[in-house]
Design a protein around this nucleic acid. Structure first.
Lengths: 203, 203
DNA sequence: CGATGTTTTGTCAATGTTGACGGAACTGTG
DNA sequence: CACAGTTCCGTCAACATTGACAAAACATCG
């Protein structure tokens, strides 16, 4: 009796589908590629495509959770008594932005896609990041019951980072260094109660 | 020459569609109701349905932006030199949670719907709230260029409120009073740098 | 190898959603 | 009222997505 899923066969079709999809996306664009074409190229049925990927666009975003994995690892490597914001800051700065899956298709990704879709996806990533931080904090506060503090802290850190990204995205010249700087500033602002003058209290 | 959209006629069909949809949703459930049924009940074509509403489920969430409108009004009524968190706190506490559209369908809403859909929608609302707060802060800081502070502050406030809601939702007994209390605590935590001991700095 | 339980696919059908095109209804004007 | 400009709606056709059911491919055990 075969017990566990994800057999070699299934893995092969998954790879075939991904390869076929990315090739089509490159050559004719995302929206101009139908899910059926992808399936045909991979030698399977449309239905099988949807058994391996929740949606056509999911293929474009499919690798972000490997980034999350990386983040979890980086956080785990930090001393447990370090202020959480410090840990995050260190992790952010060490992030390998040039890792293959992230830059691979970055070029044609942003160009053609529906902005709403991208924004929705970014929100999803932010939420997942917040969840990851929540789990880490939970572990650090093992016994104590500080659910509210933990959740709010985690969400605020994620919010600060993605707020920095938003501001960065609206700028003209966008270098990775600028993004890192904005993230840094944003975390610092958080530590100081937002703003040089403590915006939370005073404004 | 007729210049502006939203004529009386269009308004009538929109109302008919909404009425038809809600009736069906009540009697046979949301998922068991097809968009085509709604259109037929309203005496129009399927295509027309989608001209008035972006999606079937949108009808369920369609009234949240009236809540946002209310929030904007409440914020505008506050003195411009009041700390932003104070303004938000006051607005939150004055919110008419019992206003018709919000409670109207609350019952069958949460029950049947795909949790992912609900969560995604909540994220959307959170983002819109953050945007609203950002605009308010922009106005309060008119001349000065503090884009990063403004965006991050706004996002953190929204994050705190929805974090409180998350924690509240996971509890057994959920009263509106509890939600208000959690929101209050969450905003206070934000003001104090998160946690009695300033979690941002120390943990 | 053959029986048997599991995993992966294919087939079929229904629904959700959207772009393109043309006709119907409506509004202000002469 | 006839006319021209707009807005709204119906029709048609493509995709995207998903549940239900059955055949095909595979692994395991005797």
């Amino acid at each position: 009796m075969a017990r566990n899923p994800q057999t070699a066969r299934s893995e092969r079709t998954r790879i075939a589908l991904r390869r076929a999809a990315l090739a089509r996306f490159q050559s004719q664009g995302v929206e101009a590629t139908s899910a059926e074409q992808i399936a045909e190229d991979a030698g399977v049925t449309l239905r099988t495509f949807y058994r391996h990927f929740p949606s056509k666009h999911d293929l474009l975003f499919a690798d972000y959770d490997s980034g999350l994995q990386w983040f979890r690892g980086a956080m785990a490597a930090r001393p447990a008594d370090e202020p959480i914001v410090e840990s995050v800051r260190a992790a952010i700065f060490a992030f390998p932005y040039d890792v293959q899956p992230l830059t691979q298709m970055a070029a044609f990704r942003a160009a053609e896609l529906d902005p709403d879709r991208i924004v929705a996806h970014l929100r999803q990533v932010e939420a997942d990041l917040a969840t990851a931080i929540t789990e880490i904090l939970h572990r650090r506060f093992d016994g104590e019951d500080r659910a509210l503090d933990v959740v709010v802290t985690a969400r605020c850190i994620a919010a600060a980072l993605f707020g920095a990204m938003e501001v960065w995205m609206l700028r003209d010249r966008r270098t990775l260094a600028d993004l890192a700087e904005a993230s840094h500033a944003s975390l610092t602002a958080l530590e100081n109660g937002l703003g040089d003058d403590g915006m939370f209290r005073h404004y």
